[in-house]
């Protein structure tokens, strides 16, 4: 579904992404692990089109999208949620989801018609609210809801574009352990044909949800395999868990 071929990016002399080739099947849940500065978020930016790769390709459903800008990649089905919330504060939860759904439904530039009342947009909002467990708070303002709910909404907004591939940058960042467990249920409840690429710091969650694990270190893929294999890997312990425990 999503594939990179020898993707490389450097800022000046620093190689932040080096020869990264990964391949995600449709519906696969892949977790990316790696210490801080391993180039995880840079990889996301390369996938989403915020950064242009120096060399290599990004393919979505077999089509080369390397040259496409952010918005066109998003319309092809790549969506992302951010490590820091990027919500629209003054608006309600419903309006936040609606804003995203409207783009996908082609209602974002409609004149003299409110995009939110369009049936397609409403349908998406209801559906995403269910998936991201936001039904209870749909009409609350974003600045009135708890941090955990905002993290869910962050994922919800990304889902509202009805993506084929969802990139999630630390969805549980900053939430407590019991909330993280809730996120596991949330992730399990997502449609099976949605391809997920997740950056996650919470090891338990990572091993639970992942079909496969990729470990990045200094911008390079140093491990790729099943979670069970990752658990037992000495290499992983050395580069990742070592720095994880030190952090």
């Amino acid at each position: 579904m999503l594939e990179t071929r020898n993707l490389s990016k450097s800022f000046g002399p620093i190689h932040v992404t080096r020869d990264v080739s990964i391949r995600l099947e449709r519906g696969e849940r892949r977790v990316i692990l790696g210490p801080n500065g391993a180039g995880k978020t840079t990889l996301f930016n390369l996938l989403a089109g915020v950064l242009q790769a120096d060399s290599g390709q990004v393919l979505l459903a077999g089509k080369d999208i390397t040259a496409l800008p952010v918005a066109r990649r998003a319309r092809r089905g790549i969506s992302r949620s951010y490590q820091k919330n990027t919500l629209f504060d003054g608006l309600s939860v419903r309006e936040n989801l609606g804003l995203a759904a409207a783009v996908q439904a082609g209602q974002a530039r409609r004149l003299f018609h409110d995009s939110l009342s369009h049936p397609k947009v409403r349908e998406t909002v209801e559906e995403v609210a269910h998936l991201a467990r936001l039904e209870q708070v749909l009409d609350a303002r974003v600045n009135e809801v708890s941090y955990g709910i905002r993290r869910q909404l962050e994922v919800g907004v990304a889902l509202a574009t009805r993506p084929q591939v969802l990139l999630m940058d630390e969805p549980t960042s900053g939430v407590g352990p019991e909330m993280a467990a809730g996120f596991h249920d949330l992730l399990s409840g997502l449609p099976r044909d949605l391809t997920l690429l997740i950056i996650e710091h919470d090891m338990d969650l990572a091993f639970e949800v992942a079909d496969k694990i990729t470990v990045l270190n200094y911008g390079e893929v140093v491990f790729e395999g099943l979670p069970e294999a990752a658990r037992g890997s000495d290499l992983l312990k050395e580069i990742y868990l070592g720095s994880w425990e030190n952090a």
Binding site: A48, V50, P69, V70, A71, R72, A74, R75, S79, R80, Y82, T86, F88, L99, A100, V103, Q104, A108, V157, A160, T161
Partner: peptide, 9 residues
């Protein structure tokens, strides 16, 4: 940035 990532031109 966010709107662009949602697919808006």
């Amino acid at each position: 940035e966010r709107m662009r990532a949602l697919g808006l031109t």
